[in-house]
């Protein structure tokens, strides 16, 4: 059992033992990823019975996987979905957070409480009515003015991107950071004749850059990993993101080609791991500050 708070002066064998134990745990945590990578490089014959390491690294599994299922298309769709949601969130969640923190609108406190309550709404519970709302968007997908008669935003980029962007948690995070900025900054800009929107875009937004990056990385993660919503509203491969494609590819356990599936899984997790390593500060501090301030 790791000891709490090793005393400063008492470094010694204890530290090395603890380091070894923690390192073992860390290896266990990433073992499934290592296994995924190893499997994705094995030949079909090596997968019919158990083996630890591939005899030779079979990189053509990746090119073959891309033809076994339209993984390239899925990958592109996920990228578009992620870019779309992140752009919407960055534009509208930060501006809403700014409005709640720094403008003298009436009912600001109530609105803020409202946002906090909305954070708690469990997505899986409102799945059904949300589906019906998206199906009934007027003038889309053959719908009339009443939103009936067609498919609305189902099986469209609109439905894929818009409903789950601008989540209340991002509005709340942005507000928390704007609240901590001194009011004098906006005042000074106002005296200089900058418009209210100019103050937001040119003065205040750049000051919370770390928060903006945190919001972006969380939104990118949520979009890249989203599954159930795209599963429900997409009907064909030209819209399906990679998580949905992977799940469908894996659903035939008797005939599934594990090497290709693991190659697909590697493609699906690699961008997020890369982003995480590049921006880990924002992942970790964002999580921690949400936990302590929230």
């Amino acid at each position: 059992m790791p000891r709490p708070h090793a005393a400063p002066g008492r470094r010694g064998r204890g530290v090395y033992v603890l380091t070894a134990v923690m390192a073992l745990g860390a290896v266990a945590m990433v073992a499934p990823f290592v296994w995924m990578l190893l499997t994705s490089l094995k030949s079909p014959s090596e997968l019919t019975e158990f083996s630890w390491l591939p005899e030779q690294l079979r990189f053509q599994n990746y090119t073959e996987a891309l033809t076994a299922a339209p993984f390239a298309r899925y990958f592109l769709n996920t990228a578009l979905l992620t870019i779309g949601q992140t752009a919407l969130t960055l534009a509208f969640a930060t501006s809403a957070g700014y409005a709640l923190a720094c403008t003298p609108i009436r009912g600001r406190k109530t609105l803020n409480a409202f946002v906090v309550i909305l954070i708690m709404v469990p997505f899986y519970a409102i799945l059904i009515p949300e589906f019906l709302v998206v199906k009934s968007i007027p003038f889309f997908g053959g719908n009339g003015v009443t939103g009936q008669g067609g498919t609305g935003w189902l099986n469209s980029w609109w439905g894929l991107i818009i409903p789950h962007a601008i989540a209340p948690i991002y509005i709340f995070l942005a507000r928390q950071f704007f609240v901590s900025l001194p009011e004098e900054l906006a005042e000074a800009a106002r005296v200089d004749g900058l418009s209210e929107y100019g103050i937001f875009v040119r003065i205040m937004l750049p000051l919370i850059k770390p928060a903006v990056i945190t919001i972006a990385v969380f939104q990118i993660g949520a979009a890249w990993n989203s599954f159930l919503w795209p599963l429900l509203i997409t009907r064909d491969d030209s819209l399906r993101p990679i998580q949905v494609g992977l799940a469908i590819f894996s659903q035939d356990p008797l005939n599934v080609q594990w090497a290709y599936l693991m190659a697909g899984a590697t493609l699906a997790v690699l961008p997020m791991i890369a982003l995480f390593i590049a921006a880990q500060r924002y992942f970790i501090e964002g999580m921690a500050s949400a936990g302590l301030k929230g």
């Binding site: 296994w35 995924m36 990993n225 599954f227 949905v244 693991m262 697909g264 899984a265 791991i273 982003l275």
Partner: peptide
Amino acid sequence: YYMPQVTATVAVATVWLW
């Protein structure tokens, strides 16, 4: 230790299925 958290549940579920 944090890595499983950032990767998609669907992708890691296929890995665990295997």
